[in-house]
Design a protein around this nucleic acid. Sequence first.
DNA 1: GTCTATATGTAGATAGAC
DNA 2: GTCTATCTACATATAGAC
Lengths: 209, 209
Amino acid sequence: MGSNPDGKTAKRGPYAKSRLRRESIVTAAHQVFAAHGYRGGSLQDVADKVGMSQTSLLHYFPSKSELLLAVLVLRDSVAAGEIARASDGIPAGLEESFVDAVIRQARFNETVPGVIELYTVLCAESLTEDHPGKAYFTDRYQRLRESYARRFRALAEEGRLREGVDPARAAATLIAVWDGIQTQWLMAPENIDMAGCLRDYLDLVVLPG
Amino acid sequence: MGSNPDGKTAKRGPYAKSRLRRESIVTAAHQVFAAHGYRGGSLQDVADKVGMSQTSLLHYFPSKSELLLAVLVLRDSVAAGEIARASDGIPAGLEESFVDAVIRQARFNETVPGVIELYTVLCAESLTEDHPGKAYFTDRYQRLRESYARRFRALAEEGRLREGVDPARAAATLIAVWDGIQTQWLMAPENIDMAGCLRDYLDLVVLPG
DNA sequence: GTCTATATGTAGATAGAC
DNA sequence: GTCTATCTACATATAGAC
């Protein structure tokens, strides 16, 4: 998806260039918004990083808010790509456990420069009035809570959820631990063990299979 | 502290007026920063809320960043005031348990308009480059983690910490749950039970006395 | 202490030449 | 597609009259 190992169908000329240009702009915007937030980061900053003028940048994205949405879509595709890569080649019936998948994703995020910064900073910023990322984040959290709640309910049916734990509340709490520990990790990376804290929580809630 | 029930020493004239003026400015700034963040909120917004000109406002606070620090100090004093009020009149030896204190503080915050917004929005914003609130938040988290870790160690000595739980990591995780659940509550207040999630976590970690 | 006027800087977005 | 020039809006902060 995206790359064309088959030479015959590879895009050529202005179209391919334009797509690459857009990608480099979104990548630069990712860095700028991660470091300064949406309001604090300027189109000029992004343009400087790409090496073009601010007006040329607006030729590719009609407005700053459109650029933000493109950055958020990129973030999703990075995470989804990793999940696809990891589940690749694993035979059916031997899928990774929910707990392991969470820990692995947390560790993976830690290695990608800027993803955690971007997510943490923009998520909270989106809570402010008239923020163009608000819908993205509220929708995402809604879906994520439902997804995790389903996982916990499935574990409960296997008798692997600790007595008294409510799947829906555990879902919200897991997301909370994850988000909250990322914030602390950004402030003091050497003092915070993100994957460790996530595993601690999941070990309390999920009984060994 | 601050108020003077004794009439003789009450401040009069310009001084008292000035102090009240400062307080109303900080209160207005609290609202503005909670709704728009530090970067998104303008001194003009604050001045409009107070009913004065933007330049007059700068007569009381030399800069926007100084105003932010004053807002953060106010936030602390509100929380500390509540703690003092709650422990008032409780006989020694019958102090509130750590778990109960956390739950009560969480419930209290929920009732104060804007405190959770302000905290969540500014905390994440402070992670961006050159943010005047950065030192406040990093210091605060450092102290908070140490304080909670001490509490958990004390519980461990009473044999009331669950087997295998590390006090330091539990401290970071408790803060994470608290912060993270606040974010979700701001997005969907009707779907999130903040105090419930905190109690769920603490019940997993702290054994009944 | 409060204001008007203003300095100064920067933002996002548009028009139009090349 | 890319640029320069510009528009418009708004920001923080300063100077100085009253």
